[in-house]
Design a protein around this nucleic acid. Structure first.
Length: 428
RNA sequence: GUGAGCGUAGCUCAGCUGGUGGUAGCACCGGGUUGUGGCCUCGGAGGUCGUGGGUUCAAGUCCCAUCGCUCACCCCA
């Protein structure tokens, strides 16, 4: 049996890489427009970092992490998400002292040991952003608008759902009200929901059973239980989104899987990816920096976008995608003498910045022209014995089929200057 | 962790109630053009039918096991 990649681990093949590069370049450019700078953090961290940030009782920490003992016995973990590592770096290097408000982004692989399915892998890739040191609701709207803009510039249409999860001052009371509500209807809801009402009561609200949903229309809403501070923050967040003309739907049943979220949470969702509807999601996490041993009262907010899901959407919603990479010139040599003459010329042209392809196997001219066609070369330079004898080569325009003789003129410089002049202006 | 579906050429797939693996499409290589690509045409190469057992005169086809993939549940980007 030949060796295959691990379950849930995927190769991103050359055909797909173009879409990935396009997504990443678009996002980076927009991050920079919004004043974000890149931070690169390790993929391995101490297990404790994730246990403390994501929450001991979450599914991610309980059963999905790639954790193992380091050679010295320490428990280390391949990161299941990016925020914890970025905040660890933020605290460790005292970044708040360098700039009162830090705007950071990072791009890279994450690891969760789940059963793979459409849009979900064990190694997946996220582009994530974090803003530390500011709790103004306009920031929440600005961040959401940035995510919206990225999708817009990628030509993807999704919808936005927002919610507020309150804060340590108001959420406990809501949780209690919800638990009481669920307890009173224990026999009317599904087994999963009965279990969840004990482990993670907020989660019952997005149960997919229509039977349960009939019950939950009467469930208490977090939005009715927000404290004055959270309520005002949410109101201003919505108002700010309105100012930016970003359409959203308030979904009081939207819950996040990580414990650290407070106040604003949001998801960018699509119905085109099967069961995995979120292409981007995030929210505010005002107490997290302190929880990780950093400054008190350090507000934070962030979101992540899943690159696999974006790439899937790109192939579904956009046709064509990005242009193929093409060669400027294919150099076809016939015979050993010509090949020897052409080899340094090709290198010289590449040093001059041209994209040049050639055949190294001494194949027939027909075969080499075929290769030139496949390389999408705009020009072919043909050098055979006849040309060599005359001290020139044939330059063929692959689209117009026009051919002209160009002098070889001894050293490559002369020919090169001519080719660069002939070819480069028609390039990008 | 649970459930369902599917494994035949590099890719997409035919293969009926068991009876010799397909002139199949795409891709690849070569000829038709003594040295000129795309289109056309002719030819070529490419397979442990996922693997291991079983039933049978005979298994790609039926049965069992196993591995893999996919989708869904759970959960999540």
């Amino acid at each position: 049996m030949t060796i295959q990649a691990l379950k849930g681990f995927k190769d991103i093949l050359p055909d797909e890489v173009r879409a990935w590069q396009h997504i990443e370049a678009t996002a980076r450019e927009i991050f920079h427009r919004f004043g974000f700078t890149e931070i690169r953090v390790p993929i391995l961290e101490k297990t404790e970092l994730f246990a403390r940030s994501i929450g001991e009782a979450t599914d991610i920490v309980e059963k999905e992490m790639y954790s193992f003992a380091d050679r010295n016995g320490d428990s280390i973990t391949m990161r299941p998400e990016g925020t914890a590592s970025v905040l660890r770096a933020f605290i460790e290097h005292g970044l708040q002292a360098k700039l009162p408000v830090q705007r950071l982004y990072t791009i890279g692989p994450m690891f969760r040991h789940e059963r793979p399915q459409k849009g979900r892998l064990r190694q997946f890739h996220q582009m994530s952003v974090e803003v530390l040191g500011l709790d103004h609701p306009r920031l929440d709207a600005e961040l959401i608008a940035m995510g919206w803009l990225i999708l817009d510039e990628l030509g993807l249409s999704v919808s936005l759902q927002i919610n507020s999860l309150g804060c340590p001052a108001c959420r406990p009371a809501y949780k209690e009200a919800l638990v009481n509500f669920l307890a009173a209807r224990k026999e009317l809801i599904c087994e999963d929901c009965q279990r969840r009402s004990l482990t993670n009561p907020l989660r019952v609200l997005d149960c997919k059973s229509s039977h349960c949903q009939e019950q939950y229309v009467a469930a208490p809403s977090i939005l009715d239980h927000l404290c004055p501070g959270c309520s005002e923050h949410f109101r201003q967040t919505k108002e700010s989104l309105d100012l930016l003309a970003i359409p959203y739907a308030v979904n009081p049943f939207m819950v996040r899987g990580l414990d650290y979220y407070t106040r604003t949470t949001f998801e960018l969702v699509t119905d085109a990816l099967g069961a995995q509807s979120a292409v981007g999601a995030g929210g505010r996490y005002d107490g997290l920096v302190e929880k990780l041993g950093g400054a008190k009262n350090m507000p934070g907010i962030g979101f992540a976008m899943g690159m696999e899901r974006l790439a899937l959407l790109m192939t579904q919603q956009n046709e064509g995608g990005c242009p193929d990479s093409a060669s400027d010139l294919f150099v076809a040599a016939l015979g050993e003498e010509a090949a020897v003459a052409v080899f340094p010329l090709v290198h010289f042209l590449r040093r001059k910045g041209l994209r040049v392809a050639m055949d190294l196997e001494g194949k027939s001219l027909k075969s080499q022209m075929k290769q030139a066609d496949r390389a999408k070369a705009r020009y072919a330079l043909i050098l055979g014995e006849e040309e060599l004898a005359r001290g020139e080569a044939v330059l063929r325009d692959m689209t117009s089929k026009e051919q002209q003789a160009v002098p070889l003129a001894g050293a490559p410089e002369g020919l090169c200057a001519m080719l660069v002049e002939a070819i480069a202006p028609k390039g990008k």
